[in-house]
Amino acid sequence: MIADKYAEEIEGILARFPHKKSAVLPLMHLAQREYGYMSEDAMREVAGILDLDPTHVLSLAGFYSLFHEEPTGKYVLEICNDLACALRGADEFVEMVCRKLDIPLGGTTEDGLFTVKGVMCLGACDRAPMLQYNLKFAEHLDEEKFDNLIAYLREEAASGEEPPSVVEKIAAYAKK
């Protein structure tokens, strides 16, 4: 339950707005971080904290593209293949990634570690090809750097020790 795990953070987030409803995106980010995706239970939990109808949360989960309503891999690799990046080889990069991970675009690797998605501009066109994994930027990529990244992430996953995500770090600010 994020309500317990992040009780102080949530209290702080709520204090930042004159109306509770404004806290819905921050809480959804926390919930997705906690449960990996916006499961039905996660939506009901967020709705419960904010006295919203759960349908409201579902509606937002569908509207905002960073929320996943289905389980994903542990790392969601969101590769920008929008025009500016595509002019610098993003489409070929996507192809390479899919080939390496042996999944189609949108698919998840069998070990459940990686999901690959093509996304719209991420504000890093000058560093294409690039991707975001769980909201972290990886830029100026090529095949070798991508291999290194994957190796690093596999290691991290195997170690079972995950550094705090930026979502948590930001939520922690609300505490003070």
């Binding site: 404004s22 921050p26 509207f63 593209s65 996304v119 719209m120």
Partner: peptide
């Protein structure tokens, strides 16, 4: 001053 974060929508 409060920072707030969207969730993917141009």
């Amino acid at each position: 001053f409060v920072c707030h974060y969207g969730a993917g929508a141009y």
